[in-house]
């Protein structure tokens, strides 16, 4: 069963520069949260803290008995539950797609029969499994990245700009798969600049600005408050209003 993720007073700084400060929020099983914000707002840092790639300077992230703090990195058991689709898909160029998939399955200790290989078919990569990763286009590498993220059936999926470089059909298939994970009780966190693409999928929106979480609220509530039909319209209206919306959980 997926455990909720609880973030308390999370902060990260590089030198004297705080890139994330005082972030408090919770992500619950069975929801898709869209992380948005301008460039350098702290989205990637927040994701990296969650993934255990970056150690916070203050605060904590707790989930399923694991707590990440400045002094404690997440244990491998925490990472078993996590899938990650990075924005830049870069792999060892001389390996084939098949070898990469085998490597990741080996690392996770998953037998081939336990893996979810439907997406390989869906994304049309079955015939390309023996191609070298160095010979693939950016879009195909992104497809491989999506397969890696979903293949081990994670409970928590973090997607950093997942549709960047993907054609519209593939993008919709990847997002549909994220929706199925949510329906199965997983937690999906997505950062994206293309709100139209993910707004139908998102349950809540987290808006980060200058390292602070300005709001976290359900999409429906955002639309109701602003009277807008689309997130792309609702967001600027919400930001321009003087109401400083606090974290809604």
């Amino acid at each position: 069963m997926t455990e909720r993720i609880s973030i308390k007073g999370l902060g990260k700084r590089y030198g004297r520069q705080w890139v994330l400060r005082g972030v408090d929020c919770e992500f619950s099983p069975g929801e898709v949260v869209m992380l948005i914000g301008p460039n350098a707002s702290g989205k990637t840092t927040l994701i990296k803290c969650l993934l255990g790639l970056v150690r916070p300077a203050e605060g904590s992230i707790a989930s399923g008995g694991t707590t990440i703090t400045s002094g404690a990195a997440p244990d491998p058991a925490y990472r078993v539950r996590i899938g990650y689709m990075p924005q830049i898909s870069q792999f060892p160029g001389a390996l084939t797609i098949r070898q990469l998939l085998e490597m990741m399955a080996d690392i996770r200790g998953i037998a081939p029969g336990e893996l979810d290989d439907e997406l390989i078919e869906e994304l049309g990569l079955r015939d390309q499994l023996d191609k070298r990763l160095g010979a693939l286009s950016g879009g195909t590498r992104q497809k491989v990245s999506a397969i890696l993220a979903f293949r081990s059936r994670p409970e928590v999926l973090v997607m950093d700009e997942p549709t960047a470089g993907l054609d519209p059909v593939t993008a919709s298939r990847v997002l549909a798969r994220a929706g199925r994970l949510r329906d199965a009780g997983g937690i999906v966190l997505i950062t994206s600049h293309l709100m139209e693409e993910v707004e139908s999928l998102a349950d809540r929106v987290a808006y980060l600005q200058e390292g602070h979480l300005r709001f976290l609220m359900p999409v429906r509530e955002m639309l109701e408050i602003t009277g807008a039909q689309r997130l792309a319209v609702a967001l600027p209206r919400l930001l321009s209003s003087n109401e400083r919306t606090t974290v809604a959980q």
Partner: peptide, 16 residues
């Protein structure tokens, strides 16, 4: 040059 791939490995259940 393999920094991004190393990040992906570091997210897997294994120690650095």
């Amino acid at each position: 040059d393999t920094q991004e791939f190393t990040q992906l490995l570091a997210v897997q259940p294994m120690t650095r």
